[in-house]
Nucleic acid binder design. Structure first.
Lengths: 227, 227
DNA sequence: TGTACATCAGTGAACGCGCGTTCACTGATGTAC
DNA sequence: TGTACATCAGTGAACGCGCGTTCACTGATGTAC
């Protein structure tokens, strides 16, 4: 039984929420590289040094934002995948949820999958939430059974085994695992191209394009269309 | 017949080269957001205001770097595609050239396909070199003839037609065009995941993974294996 | 070929702004007896 | 329940650093006659 929070603890928790909100607003406006503790303090109506009560270093705040973003994205994907639907449908729905999240919060998507921040090294505690996203997306497609007539290269087999074991994703075989990595790369790539503006003038809005492509991938993975 | 360059013109051209070199070094070290005209001037042993003789605004320098990067990448792709080889082979070779370029110069790849710089708007003159890259990559796969049993959505047809007409890429049909966009998204996505460190611990080095996937895409596009 | 003039690369000082982080401190809140 | 003490959020000043951009200027280079 946790003791009830003291007013001080509660104020602290609320301030952390506010700090993150302001940080996200900055992220959206000026990018992650320009995240400024001083600017956050200013908007909090707090002297600049007081921020250090909450995050000892700028990078600690970035880490908090990264972890939150992975978790929010994973949750969005998980709740998009309705178990009553066929794997084919679940895959398409989940991909669309990923795109929707990314289009809605492009700066947070870029924080996760965009250019690494110079000087920032993602600490180990980001690995688990990052995995949650991969699992949430690929779990809908574990039943994949692609036609694949080529042999898996010798060097690739252990990489595939290690990765899917670590994620606890029971894929059918290595060919299926490989196809899943390809599908993941495609989804992330298409979303990146869209939110980075590479489709401007050609495929905007890109929802039809995106849906058509993830459906074809679902076909290529030969995902069951019935539950 | 162009007149021979004066010493002054020559010095100017050389300085522009040096400025770009120093800018690229900064890009690699601190990211595009931290590109600093003052720092460049310092390394050039020039007073900070003198830089404005060369680039009137910071963004003009960024634009020059973007255009150079697109052109260098396009050239790398073009020279990787040997016409004596089969389309299947050309596609795989070109994709590998793209990955090699990106792995060798990740900061330049990120400048093109990574998170947009806050406040920087790519001017129209970047469109043509950006197209050169798309053409260099996709031209190797114009003979694609994927199995595709689904109808192209109504909203998608004009987008596909416009895009491939603009690039002057004579794809077989819309299904092939759609598959090519999917392939492009996958290649960019995989390379982005790799250079942004998302494969760390799982698929590093990623060359075997990458090759296996572009080969399978070449299969799926049913590219001819003979010239 | 020589001279007068125009061009323009580079100078140096300044404006006004931003940042992260440390430090000794005040004073309200929380806790242990 | 009351009091003494410990905790710790927030203060305010300071350190040392960075940036883009403007401006009037010097003096070497280029050019037109």
């Amino acid at each position: 039984m946790a003791p009830p929070p003291t007013p001080r603890q509660q104020a602290r928790a609320e301030n952390i929420v506010r700090i993150k909100q302001l940080a996200l607003a900055q992220l959206a406006e000026s990018g992650a590289g320009a995240l400024s503790l001083r600017a956050i303090a200013r908007e909090l109506d707090i002297v600049s040094s007081a921020i250090y009560r909450y995050y000892a270093r700028r990078d600690d705040l970035v880490t908090a934002l990264v972890i939150d973003a992975y978790n929010d994205l994973a949750t969005a994907l998980e709740s998009a995948s309705r178990p009553s639907r066929s794997p084919w449908r679940q895959w398409v729905d989940t991909c669309q949820a990923l795109r929707a999240w990314a289009v809605h919060e492009p700066h947070r998507f870029s924080l996760l999958y965009g250019t690494p921040l110079p000087g920032y090294e993602a600490p180990p505690e980001t690995i688990e939430p990052a995995g949650r996203v991969a699992v949430a997306l690929l779990a809908t497609a574990v039943s994949a059974d692609p036609l694949d007539t080529r042999a898996i290269p010798r060097a690739l087999a252990p990489q595939l085994d290690t990765s899917f074991t670590a994620l606890e994703l029971p894929v059918r075989d290595r060919a299926a695992g490989l196809a899943l990595v390809g599908a993941l790369g495609q989804v992330i790539g298409l979303v990146s191209l869209e939110i980075n503006g590479q489709f401007v003038g050609g495929f905007e809005p890109a929802d039809t394009l995106f849906t058509a492509l993830v459906e074809r991938t679902a076909d290529a993975l030969r995902l069951p269309t019935t539950r």
